[in-house]
Amino acid sequence: MKKLFRSAAVLALAAALLVSLTACGKKQETQPETEEPVQEAPTTLRVGALKGPTAMGLVELMKASDLVSAGEEVPQAYDNLPDAVDTYTFTLAAAATELAPQLVKGDLDIACVPANLAATLYQQTEGEVVTLGINTLGVLYIVENGNAVQSLADLEGKTMVASGKDSTPEYALRYLLEENGVDPDTGVVIDWKNEHSECVSALASGAATIALLPQPFVTVAESKMPELRTALDLTAEWDALDNGSALITGVVVARRDVVEAHPQAVERFLEQYAASVDWVNANTADAAALIGEYGIVDAAVAEKALPACNIVCITGSEMKEKLSGYLQVLCDASADSVGGAMPGDDFYYGAE
């Protein structure tokens, strides 16, 4: 009887194993094979940038791309295109108003523009513009002929010249003054000029002793007036608030249809752009020479200004956190500054 019981048990176990193996076999048969991602054909991306800090980080990539396009060997110092799978054409402009229409019309695929303009374009195109990354943090400084200004609170009762009314310089300055207890409407007199160069001229003539200036105009002013002092770095003042955002000057945007049609090319561009930014920040003199070669800024000015230009390549979730916080500050001050409303989550490429 015990023998019969043992035989029955063995048969039952064998049957169970057979069922299990059969099931596993069926599962393996129905499991889909992993497909290799389809590789895109090489493409040409048309990139626009402004003459100034927002274009400076591109110069190594520009040089390498130009050499490849010309069929020339890329020196190791500029070798930022290891695969040489894509080509680029670059358009440099003096004003964002030149680049924005080209991007909207489809004459450009990617553009480096002011952060608030990116948000405005998103609204104007009903979401057809996406931000790939932050390329320039704050470049605004308070400069002074004297030693009266040691903090933003010291601007109380003072008169200063500035340019950039109804744009980033004004919004950033107003926010920082308010956060430091100074009423931007009654606590300080701001003489708004049309151009940054007018502010430099006012300092040089003695008509003003305090000015809000961006780089590289700070460097230009200091070259003309050795006694001029950089009193405050507005990026550092913003960071001191520890509000989760950052003072941002420029971002890299792309048309959504380009991102969707050429996702691998866009990813490669971002990788190469980040490498170019790293090279520019690590090779000031060589980068300044290229910046001068491309007519972005005079090479001598660029070499002095680069360390204070806060050139970066911030992407993904960190980009979304910093940029959305900054745009919220602008939106709270004036919704028109960001196109009437805050952009949606689909504005931030690659952010979770």
Rank of each mutant, 00 (worst) to 15 (best):
D109C: 08
V139E: 09
N80G: 14
D79M: 02
E40R: 07
T168E: 14
G52R: 05
A302K: 05
A162S: 01
I190L: 03
T22F: 11
Q31R: 13
Q76L: 13
V259S: 00
A208T: 06
G133W: 07
I248F: 05
A41G: 10
P75K: 00
T219Q: 08
V74W: 01
T168Q: 15
K105I: 05
A305F: 04
A261P: 01
D345C: 03
E33P: 10
V188A: 00
A14F: 14
E352M: 11
V68M: 09
L203K: 03
S167A: 11
L323Q: 06
G350Y: 09
Q328S: 09
T22D: 10
L11A: 14
V130W: 04
E35R: 14
T315N: 12
E178I: 06
M225F: 09
C24S: 13
L327N: 03
E318D: 15
L117N: 10
P42G: 07
A94T: 15
D191C: 14
L176K: 04
T209D: 05
L203I: 04
L203H: 09
L177W: 06
E293K: 12
S337G: 05
V104A: 06
I248W: 02
L137T: 12
A153W: 10
D154I: 08
K320N: 02
L11S: 10
Q215I: 01
A254C: 13
M56L: 04
A23H: 01
D257H: 06
V47M: 02
K322T: 01
C24Y: 13
E144H: 00
G295Q: 10
S197A: 14
V266T: 01
Y122C: 10
I142Y: 02
K51V: 02
E195A: 13
Q124K: 13
G316V: 03
A153K: 04
A202C: 11
Y141F: 13
L290K: 03
E170V: 05
